[in-house]
Simulated scan of single mutants.
Amino acid sequence: MPSRSSGLLAPERAAGQTALLIIDMINCWDFPDAEKLLPCAASIAPRIAALKARCRRSGVPVIYANDNRGRWRSDFPALAQEALRQGGPGAEIASALKPDADDYFVLKPKQSAFFGTPLELLLQHLKASRLILTGVASDQCVLVTATEAGMRDLAVVVPRDCVASQSTARNALVLRQIEEFQKLPTTPSTRLRMIPHARHLQGRRRD
């Protein structure tokens, strides 16, 4: 049965009641296979940063979802600072995607950004029924999050130029799965049209 989410988000449009989710890009890259994933993550970071900038200009909220790595006393600001201190490509990614003061974040214990996190409640608070999923790894955390978003009747788009895995071949395989089996658009980020939220437009009129 086709996912309901495939009909809710036209490939050329990705705003309205939309939120941008950035998955596992703020990272210390100290896990198995990190040396393979890090170059691929670095290659998509500038495109995610550009998409985030467009979202912020349109009033589309930005949410970071990151592993807590079993550290139940951890917090996202500390993780971001640790990522910046480590130097190298990981620090460059963290600098390019450094959270703004009004961005949101959730820490996840497993692959899904929904499992064991307040993401669903946050999206309800934001009145967001559509998600733009970006980040790594496309065949793990991104894919599982997309599946769970569909189970919650959320519309989903996965920009093909803003997700990565440990290899080009793995990324291409999961993008095909997302398109053909989950019936979700993988429209490039540059083709996504941003429509300002009503609250954002009201704020502009008051300025």
Rank of each mutant, 00 (worst) to 15 (best):
residue 21 L to A: 01
residue 22 I to S: 06
residue 24 D to S: 01
residue 24 D to A: 00
residue 25 M to I: 00
residue 25 M to A: 00
residue 27 N to C: 01
residue 27 N to H: 01
residue 27 N to K: 02
residue 27 N to E: 05
residue 28 C to M: 04
residue 29 W to D: 02
residue 30 D to N: 07
residue 30 D to R: 00
residue 35 E to C: 00
residue 37 L to T: 08
residue 40 C to H: 11
residue 40 C to K: 03
residue 41 A to P: 03
residue 42 A to T: 02
residue 43 S to W: 05
residue 44 I to N: 10
residue 45 A to R: 01
residue 45 A to G: 04
residue 47 R to T: 15
residue 48 I to C: 06
residue 50 A to S: 11
residue 52 K to G: 13
residue 53 A to G: 07
residue 56 R to N: 06
residue 57 R to K: 12
residue 59 G to E: 14
residue 61 P to R: 05
residue 61 P to S: 07
residue 66 N to R: 08
residue 67 D to R: 12
residue 67 D to E: 13
residue 67 D to F: 11
residue 68 N to M: 14
residue 71 R to L: 15
residue 71 R to H: 14
residue 72 W to P: 05
residue 72 W to K: 13
residue 76 F to D: 06
residue 80 A to K: 05
residue 80 A to L: 01
residue 81 Q to W: 02
residue 82 E to F: 03
residue 82 E to S: 04
residue 84 L to C: 06
residue 85 R to M: 09
residue 87 G to T: 05
residue 87 G to S: 04
residue 90 G to K: 02
residue 92 E to M: 02
residue 92 E to Y: 01
residue 92 E to F: 00
residue 97 L to Q: 05
residue 97 L to K: 04
residue 99 P to T: 01
residue 102 D to A: 06
residue 102 D to V: 08
residue 106 V to S: 03
residue 109 P to H: 04
residue 110 K to E: 15
residue 110 K to Q: 14
residue 111 Q to W: 13
residue 112 S to P: 07
residue 113 A to Y: 04
residue 114 F to Q: 10
residue 115 F to N: 12
residue 115 F to R: 15
residue 116 G to R: 05
residue 119 L to M: 05
residue 123 L to E: 10
residue 123 L to G: 08
residue 125 H to T: 10
residue 126 L to N: 11
residue 126 L to K: 12
residue 127 K to S: 15
residue 128 A to G: 09
residue 130 R to A: 12
residue 130 R to K: 14
residue 130 R to C: 10
residue 131 L to N: 11
residue 132 I to P: 10
residue 133 L to D: 12
residue 133 L to V: 10
residue 134 T to I: 09
residue 135 G to K: 08
residue 137 A to I: 14
residue 138 S to P: 09
residue 139 D to P: 01
residue 139 D to E: 15
residue 139 D to N: 14
residue 139 D to F: 04
residue 140 Q to L: 11
residue 142 V to S: 12
residue 144 V to D: 14
residue 145 T to D: 15
residue 146 A to G: 05
residue 146 A to S: 11
residue 146 A to H: 04
